[in-house]
Design a protein around this nucleic acid. Structure first.
Lengths: 124, 124
DNA sequence: GCCAGGTATCTTGCATCGCATGGAACCAGG
DNA sequence: CCTGGTTCCATGCGATGCAAGATACCTGGC
């Protein structure tokens, strides 16, 4: 990819990620511990939230600093050891808070943009 | 209000606004020019995107700097003159680009959070 | 033994943007 | 003149995504 924000989309999505990435990463750890490159690949697969190591590792450090995750080293058969990240109770609580917060934010933006959304009980 | 982010929600929503506020403000100008305090009130009414003057005015300066809006002064019967902001062609294009970009981002976050959304053609 | 390539982790410096705070100008009423 | 409401703007800070680079482990070829 070209570095340096050649398109407006790139700049827009970069700003969009702020604050959301943290909780998407927490969400990925909901069912089982994950390690850095694994998280990176999952975000890549999502398309809209693809990012880089330089974003994910500082983010993971912050999560650890704030006691939202704990980490354990685990050996790998195919490379260097991996640091697995798992949710703490605090991390799980933060994820749930955000999950409650998100729909309101999402719907507000939809309303401003006049994006039609399928709503179950909309009038006519 | 207590300064300094006493709650996690406040911090989360603050980060959430980044990059979205710009386009919601542009969207508010879609039908007619608006002035600063008017935009502030509209954001306040939305609830989830309520913000302050210290956020909106620097944002409007950036929009003007990037030629996404033009401004005209207009006298007011009840106070000092108002600076009305109107979309340029570039601003309208940026808004349309973002309107196309947003659903993909929104749906990606929904997927990570496992937030169920009503979809027209979901299987059973 | 040595080097190349893939896997995996982390750091540094920068740019962007929301926000609290404070200031300035205009107008009306007492 | 002075208070209060309305409207505009600037400054400094904190948080965060990102490009670029550094470090370390493992396997395989020579």
């Amino acid at each position: 990819m070209e570095p340096g924000y050649s398109s407006k989309q790139a700049r827009a999505t970069a700003q969009l990620r702020k604050g959301v990435l943290e909780y998407c990463v927490l969400a990925l750890m909901r069912d089982r511990p994950r390690y850095g490159v694994e998280l990176l690949a999952a975000l890549e697969d999502s398309g809209a939230l693809a990012t880089s190591q330089g974003t994910v590792y500082p983010l993971l450090s912050r999560l650890r600093r704030d006691d939202l995750v704990t980490t354990t080293w685990q050996e790998s058969a195919v490379g260097p050891p991996r640091r697995y990240y798992a949710l703490t109770d605090g991390g799980r609580a933060a994820l749930e808070e955000f999950t409650l917060l998100w729909p309101g934010f999402r719907d507000a933006v939809d309303a401003f943009l006049n994006v039609p959304r399928p709503s179950p009980g909309d009038p006519a």
